[in-house]
């Protein structure tokens, strides 16, 4: 029953056996023990499992592992070397864009693709751009700021102030 597939995750090639029904998210989390990608629902609604598949942000709970055969996956673990930060990670930290951290990996992976296509998104474009990812803690204000910060940083521009506007 099991199928052999080859999948490149964060630059490393893995040859693995999966059941045809195995979801990509379960391959990543359970077989390959990369638990940074999370599961928050069973209807492809929350986006906690968002990863990049051949550079496109997708919900890995909605893709079968065998559909990723021969493809390249990037997860939160692949954003930066240990101890270093990708601009999106830095933006989330500097702008307090996370609280419990559960939606954060998916939110960041979505934001990475968003910024790739649109390096200078407006607030509205960011809000629509992350509308497939649910956050229950932050109220989204600071996630928007975090993505703007990362956009500036990735272009080598001056980053916006990260001081809270709580006056």
């Amino acid at each position: 029953m099991k199928k052999q597939i080859t999948i490149t995750i964060n630059g490393e090639q893995h040859a693995v056996e999966v059941e045809p029904r195995t979801l990509l998210v379960h391959l990543i989390r359970e077989q390959l023990s990369m638990t940074g990608t999370h599961i928050g629902c069973d209807t492809s609604s929350c986006g906690a499992c968002t990863i990049l598949l051949d550079g496109k942000s997708i919900k890995s709970c909605t893709v079968l592992a065998i559909q990723a055969d021969g493809k390249s996956v990037q997860t939160v673990e692949g954003l930066a070397a240990p101890g270093e930060m990708h601009p999106i990670q830095e933006g989330f930290k500097e702008c307090h864009g996370l609280q419990c951290g559960f939606c954060t990996p998916g939110m960041m992976m979505r934001a990475v693709e968003l910024l790739e296509h649109n390096p200078n998104p407006t607030e509205e474009e960011i809000r629509w751009g992350i509308s497939g990812n649910l956050c229950r803690c932050t109220g989204y204000n600071n996630i928007v700021r975090a993505i703007q910060y990362a956009g500036a940083k990735m272009q080598g521009k001056e980053t916006p102030s990260t001081e809270p506007t709580f006056v």
Binding site: R29, M34, T35, G36, T37, H38, I39, T75, V76, E77, L79, A80, P82, M85, Q89, F92, K93, L98, G101, F102, T104, P105, M108
Partner: peptide, 13 residues
């Protein structure tokens, strides 16, 4: 934040 941002949080699942 560092562990959450790196995907190194440790949730029950």
């Amino acid at each position: 934040d560092s562990r959450f941002l790196a995907g190194k949080g440790n949730y029950v699942d």
